[in-house]
Design a binder for these strands. Structure first.
Lengths: 346, 346
DNA sequence: CTGTTAGCGCCTTCAC
DNA sequence: GTGAAGGCGCTAACAG
């Protein structure tokens, strides 16, 4: 039942080499009629080359490994989607591994990817690529989507700090001073940068930016919800410096913002009237909250396309130097910040 | 730079066969001290077996292909997550392909999976597995998560029709008669079953179930939003039979329900007071809408675990007969149906 | 233009 | 308990 190249060769009355030449369109020319015979034999037999054997022989696997932290977070889900689609379009299979920010999983997946000889790696796991992993990486081309640039690893990332400033500034324009911050896990470089952006913008505006205005939480609805409860005084917790309630929240991710809105509602606080919210992400979900979120959007498709072209460049020419790219997002105005709804078309 | 088994053998002063025995714990015994020497050599050299070569030799790839239709839909995203996690825990790499309900993509991914000799396949692509694909499938063990049972393919699926009835019945208990239905693409078997469940439940309650109460839309926020606008008369469309507005919506998926809520808000209709909503899914997102969704939840973890054990059984013993399993979901009561909010814990 | 053939790295039967 | 060797299916260098 299993057809090998030898079967095709026999049926077409040629050698196996010729079959290879036909399939790979090279490296040697094949006479048109011979080619036709071979193609017919392939058709008739329903022959499919064995990708495993081909890979072993030294060809590439035409696959790349992709480490992503959390498919539940729509931000990462959309990124993953764009990556997968882009690479598939270019003939590469993307093998995705979810790390859930767990080092053990990250390491395990990385090993599997390398054992399977992926042609390249895209890392977006959010975990610092500590030196402990360096030795196992070998010389596979790597592209990082994390905010942490590493020597000899190309990277593309959002300019978290600038995006944070954009978000906070918008809230300031609405007149807010006491802008609290729902942050992601602080050990993640990207999250740290967002916090830094918030603080910088608040400082330059002479507005408070103390630690008591920050609540750290994981990037999930639940995380955003409990962080918001904390900051807005669910349990009547008075903030150390200011006994006023924050009038606005700068939230690290859309998904946390969804949780935060939910928490506000439970606390009886109206968004945006009593609490204004701006988040970072720009996922599709942001358009469907009540009220719609104001958020800073990253262009996933562009990131994926750029990632693909840079990684494939390095795969083709491993000697090419690695580059780093930082992208600023665009503010997408919803209503959670206090801006008026778009006038209805009716 | 690349270490092969021969290097290990040399360093340990044994033959390559012994190294194999040590690595695979068989099929021949190895003397304890020899084993120790080999293990040390492996350590020292940082040797990793080449999974490609191993697969070619005839071992398995320890990978399974997974076809999922749409990672943007949290329902499928959560399913995918559970599948990935479960199989990784069992030592299998899951290679996920997104089909977006496109036959061409489905076929292409399937081919790639087979060319790469995955040990098994999990299909959740939502597309009818037409006979056109049968020939390329060969004899790989397959488990389908689609609602359509196929001969010789094991399947696990939600009892869509029963779940739909559960949802509709809950709305009926709230006193609703004119319950419109936001349906998914009707060519998908699962969607058809949901519609059937809605109709059956309405009929048995002597409530209207005509086609004018159905709006078909893709499973996305946008789809749910426009379908809701249609049904609730955004453009003042009067329904053919009833000039009253439906008082409730039975929605095929959580993500559509999110869009529907958003549309209601834009139409100035309050949920649940003017429009009650119940959906199918039970995703995490359902808990964070305003108001929280009432939805029928499927147990993703259980489905994944069962899928894994059944597929792996078939991989180990290809002769074993295929079975079909249908699971009913549980109603998770939120507030979108009209039920009162849980009393606050404060 | 086409055929022959030597491996890629691994597993496993067979001999010792 | 250990070693030698064939072969999985494919590619590409080398001959013709």
């Amino acid at each position: 039942m299993k057809i090998t190249r030898l079967d095709v060769a026999r049926k077409a009355g040629v050698s196996t080499a010729v079959v290879s030449y036909v399939i790979n369109k090279g490296p040697r020319p094949v006479a048109p009629d011979t080619r036709a015979r071979v193609e017919k034999a392939i058709q008739d037999l329903g022959y499919r080359p064995n990708a495993i054997a081909s890979a072993l022989r030294g060809g590439s696997t035409h696959s790349i490994g992709f480490l992503t932290p959390n498919p539940r977070d729509p931000f990462h889900a959309q990124m993953a989607e764009a990556i997968e689609r882009t690479f598939l379009g270019l003939g590469y299979l993307v093998i995705t591994g979810n790390t859930y920010y767990a080092r053990a999983r990250e390491e395990r997946l990385l090993r599997t990817f390398l054992d399977r000889k992926v042609d390249g790696l895209i890392l977006n796991s959010g975990i610092t690529l500590a030196s402990s992993l360096a030795p196992i990486l070998g010389d596979v081309p790597i592209l990082s989507l994390d905010a942490e640039p590493m020597p000899d690893i190309a990277s593309i990332s959002a300019d978290e700090s600038a995006d944070a400033a954009t978000a906070v500034e918008h809230l300031q324009r609405h007149g807010h001073r006491l802008i609290a911050h729902i942050a992601g896990p602080p050990h993640l470089r990207g999250e740290e940068l967002k916090t830094r952006g918030w603080r910088g913008q608040q400082d330059s505006h002479h507005s408070p930016s103390g630690d008591e205005l920050i609540a750290y939480a994981e990037s999930s609805e639940e995380g955003g919800s409990s962080a918001a409860s904390l900051l807005l005084g669910a349990r009547g917790r008075p903030t150390a410096l200011h006994d006023e309630r924050p009038t606005a929240l700068f939230v690290s991710s859309d998904v946390q913002a969804i949780g935060a809105i939910s928490a506000c509602r439970q606390l009886g606080l109206r968004v945006p009237h009593e609490v204004a919210i701006v988040s970072l992400g720009g996922t599709r979900a942001a358009g469907y909250t009540q009220p719609p979120l104001t958020t800073v959007r990253q262009d996933f498709e562009f990131i994926a396309a750029t990632a693909a072209s840079r990684l494939l460049d390095r795969i083709r020419d491993p000697g090419s130097s690695s580059s780093d790219l930082m992208l600023t997002g665009n503010l997408v105005v919803g209503e959670s910040c206090g801006c008026p709804p778009p006038t209805s078309p009716y």
